[in-house]
Nucleic acid binder design. Structure first.
Lengths: 198, 198
DNA sequence: TACAAAATATACTATTTTTGTATATATTCC
DNA sequence: GGAATATATACAAAAATAGTATATTTTGTA
């Protein structure tokens, strides 16, 4: 009577429910997707759903958590690579922006304007995320890889840049997404001054 | 007391409601979008909505009708162009496929699996559409622009081809949409045999 | 300015959807 | 065969949505 917990977390139907929900949430946001619809699409019965999750929010939290974990793993993976810091930063930004565009604006909207509980959860997760990343930035500065700006400032800048990246009208001014991403990266790395003056 | 009807159909808010609904319907389908949401997004009050439309279906019918009218116009426009018939057909197909991909699968799903009334309406519109197109095909055959296949058969073929075009897995096998569309066009024009044997 | 048309705000009821649970049955897989 | 897992169905409670009534405000224009 040991592996019960583990079995529960890896059951076939459970995984199917999670994957289906992920897909639907990403396409339509959260409020537009009903539990019934998730079950139908996943080919699972409602009872099975409630066996594993107490409600839609619980399921959502698990999905969100999964993304964060994946993000941590990716961060460490990138950090372990034998490339200059600048390229590491570029990798991280690209990863984040791709994830963001996959997740889609509807999803983020619903999370941020959803109920109190969800907003709190996201805030908390964000906080933990930030702490990890701050440590990372600090180490980079110690090594001399980054200018001595305050980590808190850097994080706020990243937030603003993310907002920029989500601006559709802006994005449309570029021929393709890569060009847009590169522009953002270059600005982040070098600022606005031409190379000679630096 | 004359232009009342016209004024009603061209009122600013009315147009805004229609445009907003179009956008939301195309992105999320019909059932996922509430009247309240349309009003909020359009910056109109619910009373204004009900002044112009009796319900969501009525609004939808108007939108659908608009697309059909646009389609007719485009058909005539293409027909009037000074290009070979083959290219006209290519233009028509491209137009249809683009419209279809803009509309999105969620929309079509909801229309087809929606209530009785809506299905009937769509059937009726389709019927009218088909009659017009049949006439077009017939004329082309009279001019010798098309092989003498039966127009009904040709229409069924087009239906099947449209189903093909909507198959995501198939589409993914091509580098880009244009290559995919061209493959379909070529098949439609020339069949499967190589040029020498024709 | 003054009027009529158009739009809004608010509040409310009826309807429909969705949620979450209970119960009895079926399937799967050691 | 038996435990774990999944299902079907039906149902009450809760929540969302639709649609209406009434009173007020904004807007265009004669």
């Amino acid at each position: 009577m040991n592996g019960t917990r583990d079995k529960k977390r890896t059951s076939k139907k459970r995984l199917q429910i999670v994957e289906t929900a992920k897909d639907l949430f990403m396409r339509f946001g959260i409020r537009r997707v009903t539990i019934d619809e998730i079950c139908r699409t996943a080919g699972a019965s409602k009872m099975t759903f409630y066996k594993y999750f107490s409600n839609k929010i619980a399921l959502l939290k698990e999905i969100w958590n999964g993304w964060l974990e994946e993000g941590y793993r990716r961060l460490e993976e990138i950090d372990g690579m034998e490339i200059p810091f600048r390229e590491k930063l570029a990798e991280i930004i690209e990863y984040k922006m791709n994830l963001l565009s996959e997740i889609g604006p509807e999803f983020l909207d619903d999370v941020l304007h959803g109920g109190e509980e969800l907003r709190e959860f996201v805030q908390e997760m964000r906080q933990r995320n930030i702490l990890r990343f701050m440590k990372y930035v600090h180490e980079a500065q110690e090594r001399g890889d980054m200018r001595a700006i305050r980590p808190e400032f850097f994080l706020s800048v990243l937030d603003k840049i993310q907002e920029l990246a989500e601006d559709e009208r802006l994005r449309k001014l570029y021929n393709d997404d890569m060009e847009f991403i590169r522009e953002i990266q270059n600005f982040l790395f070098f600022g606005v001054l031409p190379a000679e003056t630096r």
